[in-house]
Amino acid sequence: MSIAILLLTLTLGAYFIAVIEGWAVHGRFSLTRPALSAVALFGRESLLARTPDRLFFEAAPVLLLVAGLLAVAVIPLAPGLIIADLATGALFLNAALAYVLVALIMAGWGPNGGYAMIGGWRFLGQFIAYAMLIVMPITAVAMRAESLSTTMIVTSQADLWNVFYQPLGFVLFVLAAMGLAWLPPLDLPNAPGDLAGGVEAEYTGVRLAVLRLARMVIILALAGAIVTFYLGGWLGPWLPGWAWSVIKMLVVTTVMLTTGRLVPRVREADLLAAGWKLGIPLALANIFLVGVIALVVDI
């Protein structure tokens, strides 16, 4: 039963993301267009590029989807409403999302085309910039909860949400999450303006549908992670826990999908410089501060 509810939430969440993204990209809010696009994609040819690396080309969208689904599995919507309540949930999330890099490089390599390949390798560079900023803020969150279990992390925020307890970590994690989900302004691997679709450029039909769905699941997983780690998960007054989780996730996805489009796409070199010269010292400072607070104050 809980699995069914979770799957329903996942489906609706992914659809919501498609609606918001359509609104952000095309300037029109349409509840039906994503459904039409999806149906239309299923009717189109799934073309193969000229001399593809067939295995990589076919496997990449599926791998991306699997990585997203695995990450979703450890996000709790409410106490007991979680697919897998692992003791190492936070670590598992991180491990699952590591395959996003693999999948994107495969997607870039597979079709044997210039745009896609540059997009794939660009994401490798982007990974180097965001990877530490996913792990290090999670470390600080786990320090406070004294557990890597995602449900324990939520309950540890009963008195004070982590967004207030460790705001620095929150900001870094959100930015890194946008990098991981290649959302604008960190959409370097598919950069519509300078790579004409990049890693997505050679995918058509069903494969493209899977690729786009996978990306939505990843965005959803990351929004769930942000809510779980920083925004108190299901905690909230009046409404049932799952409702709070869903509301918070929708707000987070909307912010992630829309705000980044107000700034130009970040240059790869600038992204790497910011990630390493600024991001990592700040993440270390965050861990240090959280450690000091955890020792001194009892919340």
């Binding site: 267009r33 459904a35 039409l36 696009s37 149906v39 239309a40 299923f42 009717g43 189109r44 040819e45």
Partner: peptide, 20 residues
């Protein structure tokens, strides 16, 4: 056009394509 008999499902898909 794409090869295929015009079944009900394909009509539905073609309708979606026309709007998308």
């Amino acid at each position: 056009a794409r090869t295929g008999m015009r079944t009900g499902l394909r009509r539905l898909i073609a309708g979606a394509m026309a709007r998308d």
